[in-house]
Amino acid sequence: MTATLTKPGTKPATRPAAAGGKKSTTILVTGALVVATLYFLVPVYWVVVASTKTTGDLFGTNGFAFAANFNLWNNLAQVLSYDGGIFVRWFANSVLYAGVGALLATYIAAAGGYALAKYTFRGSNLVFGIILGGVLVPGTATALPLFLLFSQLGLANTYWSVLLPSLVSPFGLFLCRIHAQATVDPALIEAARLDGAGEIRIFHTVGLRVLTPALVTVFLFQLVGVWNNYFLPLVMLSDTRLYPITLGLNNWLSQVNRLPEFYQLTTGGVLLSIIPLALAMIVLQRFWRGGLTEGSVK
């Protein structure tokens, strides 16, 4: 809400030198940005080209130019059907870990952040301090001991072993607390109380609705975080059918030295896996920026 209020005001103000911008500087600046774009997009372009080639053409023709033989559909069909469609299963696993994990993590972080912001109770500062420490603990430091713990509980090498750690977002709780403090009006809560609504119900009806912009940011952070996570599933999972897409594709890459046709499977798989994420990034980056700005302003 604050973002929509501040944006119209700041937008023209933050680009003030427009009148002074000369044509030569515009060309120079835009040129530099184009060069940077080339750097960021070249690997993606390469994989698009490579996935349209046969294994022979992959090694025999220029990597940045399309070959005469257009083999894309064949390659993709192979990716989707190899080993009984294991790629589709990996993709579904990633969607489960990242999608369901991020959704629940956002809800749990919102409830916690709202509680810490809107109630004064004994121990709240201690609890918040400990959770804040959790923001600084790197995920890879806890992955190994988590594996030891989970294997004693019989949870290692199950869906739960990756899903449960994905449900916790200390950073998300931190963001939600900041937003709840700034945006959830105490008068609104008091009004709901006078209407006879229970505390938990007030959170669901008033809190969640007002927090929605922050929740989008928390959800996106957690979604990308879990989708990109590699160390945790690598440590936890040994059954290839439970693999997320990252582990699965690395499994294919590790076989290219023995069987070169795995190059074709891997490039096709990489292409299929980055399309949805690339689209999501392009569409969602505006929410991302909005969320970060709000967090930093307050």
Binding site: L33, P43, T246, L249, S273, L277, Q285
Partner: peptide
């Protein structure tokens, strides 16, 4: 800076690699 053309487009292009998991980026 006010001199940049199509800032939204460039920003999206620069941010895109962040959505590519480290493993996939390394494979690429």
């Amino acid at each position: 800076s006010a001199s940049a053309r199509w800032p939204g487009l460039f920003r999206a292009a620069f941010f895109l690699p962040y959505g590519v998991p480290g493993v996939i980026a390394t494979i690429l």
